[in-house]
């Protein structure tokens, strides 16, 4: 008979980081689109209304969360006591494995190629892309924040980032890049969620639940 064993895949820190980022990003997308395309509230007196104010507050609050979540994630990639995974972000460098992986995704090959690393080759490419996206949206977000608020941590960041603003061509360009990257996040999320379900269905190892429980199931052949 086959025995199923649990293999620990994700540390607690990694799982908390994952879901906190997911929540922040969902809220940031929703509030971000409101800031870009606000609807007018016509009823009532101006003094009693503060919708844009509240939405911006929420956006910036979760934006700052995301800044620290990102820093935490980078820290984990290098210094996690469970598994520092920074090398795994480069699994795509193995061209042969990448080709095999694409064949598997395109349903040309039926059995899953073994991963030598924590992530599959295509997966690692997507995640390093995600890290880059978070980096860009965090930097542009901090610039937009610094433009309107001139004290404390925000002002310090802005002082450092102002040359980047000038290099990019001013606040309007920064804002536009921030907007474009929002779409990259949406595209990432669509594919990411599908791939998680697909793996779960094809490999039957509990990919979806692993980000909650921390474990993947493996069949141990006797």
């Amino acid at each position: 008979m086959e025995k199923i064993v649990c293999k620990k895949e994700w540390s607690v820190a990694m799982r908390i980081n994952h879901w906190a980022m997911a929540l922040s990003i969902f809220i940031l997308i929703a509030t971000g689109f409101y800031i870009a395309n606000p609807f007018t509230v016509s009823q009532g007196d101006t003094v009693h209304k503060f919708l844009m104010g509240h939405v911006r507050y929420g956006h910036i609050l979760f934006g700052v969360f995301l800044v620290f979540l990102f820093l935490w994630r980078v820290y984990l990639a290098f210094f996690s006591r469970f598994h520092a995974d920074w090398k795994d972000f480069f699994a795509w460098a193995d061209v042969k494995a990448s080709v095999e992986q694409v064949k598997f995704y395109l349903l040309i090959r039926k059995d899953a190629p073994e991963h030598k690393m924590l992530y599959g080759p295509m997966q690692s490419l997507a995640y390093i892309g995600l890290m880059f996206m978070v980096f860009v949206i965090v930097v542009t977000g901090l610039i937009l924040m610094g433009a309107g608020y001139h004290a404390g941590f925000t002002a310090l960041c802005y002082k450092i980032l102002r040359p980047i603003e000038n290099l990019l061509g001013g606040l309007a360009v920064v804002r536009y890049i921030h907007h474009i990257f929002t779409w990259f996040f949406i595209l990432f999320i669509v594919v990411h969620i599908y791939m998680a379900f697909w793996y779960d269905a094809v490999l039957k190892q509990g990919t979806i639940s692993s980000m909650v429980s921390g474990v993947l199931f493996e069949r141990e052949k006797k």
Partner: peptide
């Protein structure tokens, strides 16, 4: 702006009340 009161069209009700011109393309934030 903070109250989400925007002019939606030149000369509309919001314009008469002096609402924010963000949706009419105001580039003041940049």
């Amino acid at each position: 702006y903070d109250a989400s009161e925007f002019v939606e069209e030149w000369g509309d009700k919001g314009a008469l009340k002096g609402w924010c011109l963000y949706k009419m393309g105001c580039k003041g934030p940049y």
